[in-house]
């Protein structure tokens, strides 16, 4: 296990280095000048040039790259070109919001998706199966910003159960209120994915010989489904959850915007619009670390879910 973790961390370092280099180059290839963005549209060319010098953007690319790498190694991600606030502070201030939203969305997705997927599989080609498949298709094709606004109209405007602005969380109730709608919004999309994967994995497992044998030996149907079939169907479900979790972190931006929650997604969109190079670089480090961590966790969970999988 230790050797496995060390090896994976080694790969993670190489991945991180490659991502940092690529993102350093990409943000500088993009058209758009951060100095112009900072100074606004009334600044003359001389002022823009002076600002570029102040930001160090007029230095040779290699010098900037060396500076960036040495800073990254020392844990110094610099300050935002636009706001002047330290990048690490900005990123860490919103990171818990994103992680929290993603995890609760995952829980909701799994709580809805796995039972529905099983239910659809055991009722294959019956009305329930069709209904669940159509519902999951709707979940997949419904844009997050539309479902978010519908949730707000229903639960915040009509019923007044939740606030529209999700940022207040001084009390436990406020925290819950701020989390439920965004997590449900994102969780429903997750649920649609998990339902479909669970259904297809379960269908495959349910047609296996050992399931038939268990049934022939008189094992109750529910026990066959939950104890025998589901455990064997878990690997593809974990794989898709692990893969989708990384996507979910990136895709949470629409939910964050609609529910006005802070988060990495909103931060990265703002940094892109403003060509905030240092902020983008810091964000990429965090994204890479998160994706690596999720993959690592997925591998570990494989072993837990199925003892036949060895972490070697």
């Amino acid at each position: 296990m230790t050797a496995f973790l060390v090896r994976r961390l080694g790969f993670a370092c190489i991945t991180l280095f490659a991502v940092l280099t690529i993102i350093f180059l990409i943000v500088r290839i993009l058209p758009g000048d951060p100095a112009q963005v900072i100074l606004g549209d009334q600044a003359d060319a001389g002022a823009v040039a002076a600002m570029r010098t102040r930001l160090g953007l007029d230095r040779p690319l290699l010098v900037q790259y060396a500076d960036f790498l040495s800073g990254a190694i020392r844990g110094d991600w610099g300050v935002s070109l636009v706001t002047g606030r330290p990048v690490i502070q900005e990123v860490l201030s919103v990171l818990p919001w994103t992680i929290e939203l993603t995890l609760y969305a995952l829980l909701i997705g799994a709580a809805i998706g796995i039972p529905l997927g099983i239910w659809a599989a055991v009722n294959r080609n019956l009305f329930t199966d069709y209904a669940i498949r159509i519902a999951s298709l709707l979940g997949l094709s419904f844009p997050a910003f539309v479902s978010g606004i519908l949730l707000l109209i229903g639960f915040a405007i009509q019923l007044r159960w939740f606030p529209v602005i999700s940022g207040q969380r001084a009390t436990w109730t406020q925290w819950l209120q701020s989390l439920v709608l965004p997590a449900v919004n994102l969780g429903l999309i997750m649920a649609a994915y998990i339902t479909r994967v669970t259904r297809s994995a379960m269908l495959e497992v349910l047609s296996e010989d050992y399931v038939r044998t268990a049934r022939a030996k008189g094992v109750p149907w529910q026990a066959v489904v939950w104890r025998h079939a589901l455990r064997n169907a878990l690997i593809p479900i974990i794989t898709i959850v692990g893969l989708y979790l990384g996507v979910l972190i990136g895709n949470s931006v629409l939910t964050e915007i609609v529910f006005n929650r802070p988060g990495l997604g909103k931060l990265i969109v703002g940094a892109l619009n403003q060509r905030d190079y240092t902020m983008l670089q810091g964000m990429m480090v965090i994204y890479t670390l998160l994706v690596v961590a999720i993959n690592l966790a997925t591998d570990v969970v494989y072993g837990v879910a199925d003892p036949r999988v060895k972490l070697q």
């Binding site: 910003f145 707000l152 405007i157 007044r160 602005i165 940022g167 609609v258 529910f259």
Partner: peptide, 18 residues
């Protein structure tokens, strides 16, 4: 000063009295 980039969300927050 609440920072709400989404027009729809800002409008809904105003309707909700927030």
């Amino acid at each position: 000063y609440r920072l709400i980039p989404s027009d729809a969300a800002r409008d809904l927050a105003f309707q909700a009295g927030e």
